[in-house]
Every structure is written in structure tokens, then in C-alpha cells.
Computed example of a mutant assay.
Amino acid sequence: MRTEDVLALLGDAASAGRVRALRGDLRGRVDVHIARAREILQSDVARVDASALSALKAGVEAHDAATDDESRWAAMREAYDTAQRALLNAANDPDLALADVTHVGSETVKDDAFVERKMTFYGENGGDAGRWRSLNDGVMGGASSGTLSTTDDGRCMFSGNVSLDYNGGFASVRAYVEEVGEDFDGVYIDAKSPTGEAKTFLFILKDEPCLLEQTNFKVKFKVGTEFTRVKIPFAAFCRAERMGRVVLRPPLKIDAIREFGLMILKGSPEQVGPFELEVKEIGFYRG
């Protein structure tokens, strides 16, 4: 059993436990989590972060020592959260490590036989631009802004301002899609930074369960002042989040992709303030 196997087991337990909790079977939720933790600890493991295993062991011991279901669940929740963070961090930030950024010229993009374009922004009414909506930190009381608009030369501009006022700090745009990515290796975006600022953006994918669970899969990327094709393998979308907190669930279902998104998030000082990301097209690639 290796890291990916342990992550899959933890995700399966979390999903099964969530179903039991929704049915009111809180004890059943605990039972699912403790059974999976014991299974992992009793298995032969290889290349699995030791601190993750220690967290699971401590959780099992705390569970066994607890005298009520609330304490048992608290022990399991803490163990799972700590173990998954350790397993994901052991991969050296998979978001950035797996994002394959390739610089290409316009002719290469046109002649690429291994892509399928999904979003363009030229033609009547700006192509697919009208399918996007804004989702900013105003939903939490923040003051950031972010919109997607078309340019005169058939591209779109994701622009706005990231503000820290009122505990805010993110801006995003989203588009509902109905895509199947099984025949491809990942998603690409052709984009550039018109101002030359080296801001970090995130590409978001949601599958069908994400819409129900209010979760996201996000991957970081950067671009320069010339158009760049950013190729992101589907495997990079390995960390489900809800409001910045890791959520235990199975991997992204690439046969049921339901949302594309672009986001900018607070962090380092250069992330705060005005931003612009010019996008030519978005699609899937193979090879």
C-alpha cells in the first residue's frame, strides 16, 4: 500500500461516512472511519509518510479511549485531517509540481492536433464569454472584485482587485460546463499577463459531486507577458477543498466535469491589489 492507496481509502471512508451522517447515523460515520484507519495501520505500507501513519495511530488510540460518540468522532476527524495534509505535503506541493507550463507560438497552437478547444472568446457576443459568472469574496462579506470581459481582438480579460478588507482576499469567475475528459491527459489555458506582474492564479475544475458538496479542485499557475500555453494534468487536481480547507473525498471525476474556474487568492503581498489575466482559449490536451 502506497501514498495514493492510503489517500483513496481515506477519501472513500469520508464519502461513506458523509452519507451515514446525512441519514442521521452518526455512530455509523464513526465506525466507517475507525474501520478504515485500522485497515491502513494493519497493512503493509511503502513510501507512506510516517507522520501520517502516526496521526492515524493516535486517532485510533484516542477513539478507543473515548467514552462517547462525540469524542470518538473528534478523534477520527483530527486524525484524518492531519494524515491527509501530511500525505499531500509529502508530494512537495503537487499543485505546482504537476503543472507543466509550456511556451508556444500562435502557429503551434493552431496546428496542434492533440487538443480539443472548449472555450473561445471571439465571434458573435464574444464566444463563450457569456457563460462565465463572477464569484468573489463578497459572499463572505469581503470587498474584492473580479469579472470576465471580452477584448476587441477576440480574447477575454479576467480582471479586478483583491482586497483584504473585511477579511476578504479572493476573486474568481466560473462557467458551468458538461465535459468528459477521459480521452485526454489534462486541461490547458492560453494566457498572458498584460501588465507583466508575476501574480499566481488558480485554475478550478469541479465534477458532479463538487456541485453537491460545494468543493473545488484548484491548481496554481503563472504566466508572463507573452501568451503561454499552461498544460495542467488532470492528476494535478488531486486536492479537494472547501473554503480553503482540505476535504476528504475521491479524486476528480474527469468523466463528469461540470465547472471551469479562474481565481486569484491572497497570500504574498504581490497578490493583493489590481490584477489582469488575458485568456485566448481553454481546452483539453493529450500527450
Rank of each mutant, 00 (worst) to 15 (best):
F217V: 02
L262D: 01
G17V: 10
K280I: 03
E182V: 13
A175L: 00
A97N: 12
N89C: 03
P194N: 08
G126T: 12
R117P: 00
D152C: 11
G28Q: 03
Q84L: 04
R18L: 06
A75D: 04
D255S: 15
A66G: 05
R174W: 04
D31I: 07
G168I: 03
D44T: 14
T82A: 15
A83W: 04
L135E: 09
A74F: 00
K220A: 11
F221H: 09
L212W: 13
L211A: 14
R85V: 07
V279K: 11
A37D: 00
R18N: 00
I189V: 15
V109N: 02
R20K: 15
K57I: 04
G105C: 07
L212V: 15
V45W: 00
D49L: 06
G11L: 04
S15Y: 07
A83C: 09
P269Y: 11
D165Q: 14
I40K: 08
G196M: 12
P250E: 07
F201W: 10
F284P: 00
V101N: 11
I254G: 10
G127H: 02
D183Q: 14
S71C: 06
M1H: 10
G141Q: 03
A240P: 00
Y285N: 08
E70R: 15
T147E: 14
Q214N: 13
A198W: 05
L265W: 03
R29I: 05
N161Y: 13
E226H: 11
I232K: 01
N89M: 04
A236T: 07
A55T: 02
G130E: 08
F201Q: 03
T225K: 15
L56P: 01
H63W: 00
P233Y: 01
S144W: 04
G267Y: 02
S51I: 10
L22C: 02
A79Q: 06
C156N: 06
Q42L: 04
P233G: 08
G169N: 06
R286I: 05
E281P: 02
A58S: 09
F114Y: 12
I232D: 06
V272C: 09
K222C: 07
G146F: 05
E124Y: 13
K266G: 10
G287I: 03
D190E: 13
P274S: 14
E178R: 14
H103G: 03
Q271S: 12
G123I: 11
A55G: 01
D93T: 10
V247P: 01
A90P: 00
G261A: 10
G181S: 06
E281C: 11
A236H: 06
F121I: 08
G287Y: 12
V101A: 15
R18G: 02
G181Q: 04
P209G: 08
W132F: 14
E270R: 15
E276G: 00
V101E: 13
L265F: 05
L98I: 04
M140P: 02
R29M: 12
K266I: 11
F121R: 09
S71E: 14
D190V: 15
S172R: 05
A97H: 05
Q214I: 08
V45R: 05
A14S: 14
K199Y: 00
G105M: 10
L9A: 13
V48Q: 02
V6N: 00
V109K: 01
